[in-house]
């Protein structure tokens, strides 16, 4: 356990998180222990409201947690400042969202290049890099298109290219196929698997068994706890 804990890309120990709504407190994560090894493709499943998104947001440093320890790439993420969180996000993490979250007035190419802009990469370089990743997801011919000129599957592939461009250790995807039909879902999943084969750790939140079954392992959340692992 301790060796795995150190080799893990992600190691969570007794993570607890509660939401405060008015005077009421809703505990969503009631002590999560889990490790994700480098290069794993992991699915998180669970009924609606079970805390999947909450867990993924904690993993993605988009939200903080109340208690426990989170070690990402060997570094403790406890009590990070906004600024440090932004830096770790841009260094280690890539995000894929259910609703794509592309910037509507930017072309596919510019959307993909955006993370490099925040890393201070010169324009020429980031354009070239973005083009390479667009080709990788099969959208080289769509580089100049705006998001609303793309299909759902294409948008999600652009989002995946954007998640990849900063060369993250981990890609976190919250229901990446939730807005897609089954054929495009399979395409997107195939792409994620391909990326995973290159060594990038991927965590996918999903409702769909067909998606989860393509993963190395499924983490099931129930009532704020991990129900059991299945490899």
């Amino acid at each position: 356990m301790s060796a795995g804990y150190l080799a893990a890309v992600i190691a969570l120990k007794s993570i607890r998180k509660a939401y405060q709504t008015g005077s009421q407190s809703l505990t969503v994560l009631k002590g999560i222990d889990c490790t994700i090894e480098k290069g794993e493709l992991v699915a998180i499943m669970g009924s609606s409201g079970s805390g999947k998104s909450t867990l993924l947001n904690v993993l993605g440093l988009l939200d903080d947690f109340d208690a426990g320890t989170y070690v990402l790439n060997g570094q403790n993420m406890d009590g990070l400042s906004e600024k440090a969180a932004a830096r770790y996000r841009s260094e280690f993490l890539g995000f894929v969202f259910q609703s794509f979250n592309l910037i509507s007035y930017k072309s596919a190419l510019e959307n993909v290049a955006l993370p490099l802009y925040y890393q201070g990469v010169p324009r020429k370089e980031r354009q070239a890099s973005a083009m390479a990743f667009l080709s990788k997801v099969g959208l080289a011919d769509w580089a100049e298109h705006l998001p609303n000129q793309l299909s759902g599957g294409q948008k999600q592939r652009v989002a995946i290219a954007r998640a990849l461009i900063a060369n993250p250790s981990v890609i976190l995807a919250d229901e990446p196929t939730g807005a897609l039909d089954s054929v495009t879902s399979d395409e997107v999943m195939a792409l994620l698997k391909e990326i995973n084969k290159e060594g990038i750790t991927i965590v996918v939140v999903t409702h769909e068994n067909e998606i989860a079954n393509q993963c190395d392992r499924i983490i099931r959340l129930k009532d704020g706890r991990i129900e059991g692992s299945n490899g």
């Binding site: 932004a86 841009s90 955006l114 925040y118």
Partner: peptide, 12 residues
């Protein structure tokens, strides 16, 4: 959009 940018590494 600002949230997305922050997720992608935009600083304050």
């Amino acid at each position: 959009e600002i949230g997305v940018r922050k997720a992608l590494g935009a600083t304050s």
